[in-house]
Nucleic acid binder design. Sequence first.
DNA 1: CGAACCCTTGATTGATGTCAACATACGTGG
DNA 2: CCACGTATGTTGACATCAATCAAGGGTTCG
Lengths: 213, 213
Amino acid sequence: MVSLMDEQSFSLADLMGKKLTLQKGDCVFCQGQMFDSVYLIGAGSLKTYNLNSTGKEGVTGFYFQGDIVGFSGMDMGYHPCFAKALEPTQVYKILFHEMEDLSALEPFWARQVLQIMSRQIRENQRLIALLGSRSERKIASFLLGLSAKFNAEVSSAEFFKLTMSRNDIAAYLGVSGETVSRTLTQFHKKGYIQVKGKEVSILSFSALQQLNV
Amino acid sequence: MVSLMDEQSFSLADLMGKKLTLQKGDCVFCQGQMFDSVYLIGAGSLKTYNLNSTGKEGVTGFYFQGDIVGFSGMDMGYHPCFAKALEPTQVYKILFHEMEDLSALEPFWARQVLQIMSRQIRENQRLIALLGSRSERKIASFLLGLSAKFNAEVSSAEFFKLTMSRNDIAAYLGVSGETVSRTLTQFHKKGYIQVKGKEVSILSFSALQQLNV
DNA sequence: CGAACCCTTGATTGATGTCAACATACGTGG
DNA sequence: CCACGTATGTTGACATCAATCAAGGGTTCG
């Protein structure tokens, strides 16, 4: 996979984007804030979430190195969600009108942006297709997706870190935090995964894939 | 809202896209098929869905006039879903590499494409945020979203037509067909909506919005 | 006109949310 | 470095929503 973090585009990002360093809990942008930029993630991870009138968080996505966060604000002109760092994180701020200009100038960049948006649409639709399935399957799919993402883009370590809390995962998949806990220990007891706090390793991809259907 | 169906871009679409006429049930593309085009909808409506190994349909989206369908296939190089007409429908086939060329030449077009993709990301995330909520709320949100879309883009008629079946709605929202039926009649009894087969009219937006939270 | 599909409604069952208690990890300040 | 307090995670008991099964009516299309 060609990534925006490859050398060629890294220089592009450097050119156009102001580099921001975030601590855990810092927000890149807030729900309702005016849209003028998107953010390319250089390192770390973010979650996007919105608050409904009851104050409950709905997590709409997790973002890692090479992802761009903030596109959902483009068409309405304001961000419909918060974007908050899950760990120390670096992002490159990309002013939207500069990105548009560059699209006209640099075909490689334009194609990369479309690729990233397309990937996001596909990933969102993968989740939507899970909407009706049981929590076991949702969580299996979540682990497999995360593992694929990490192996492809971040590292090939056996263990990967869940930088988000169990409740974040729960709010993302539309289940309760307790169900996430229960299902993880269930997977562990069946020998599908190994869990050490926030570190997870998949022992049987096939078993999870079978649940995933 | 500026739409791709406005005069200026209509001529663009005419220029680049071969016009296809579909009957109800016809597929624009199939799951697994190679990606080379996206499709701008001129009239009618489509659903996208995928089949899992058990043969069960998971509906990932509904698309109407002015939407572009097929972006989810871009980054992997093949379509991860079917796109099937829900009624007599017209689409403009847009070869992807031609779209890229035109985007480089025509900033207006490039911006429109980004807008449409952004809207789709936002709409998908709105659904994802509903993942954990009760079916009542899911269906209320679905009706409100559809109503907004129709009023904005298709017509301002009081009634709008559900071109998809109850089971399609169910598969989209991750509930059972029976639950869709029951909830609609419940809304009807409470005076929130009027239902005549596939025609629906919203009598109390506020009541539905309150459920929507 | 028949057959297939779609929709509605009822009864039952099962999965999962909620509540509660406890355990563990984390961060902060002494 | 320890001690405390808070946030996060785990586990159990129970309640509830919605899936499933089933039956019947309605609609569409060949």
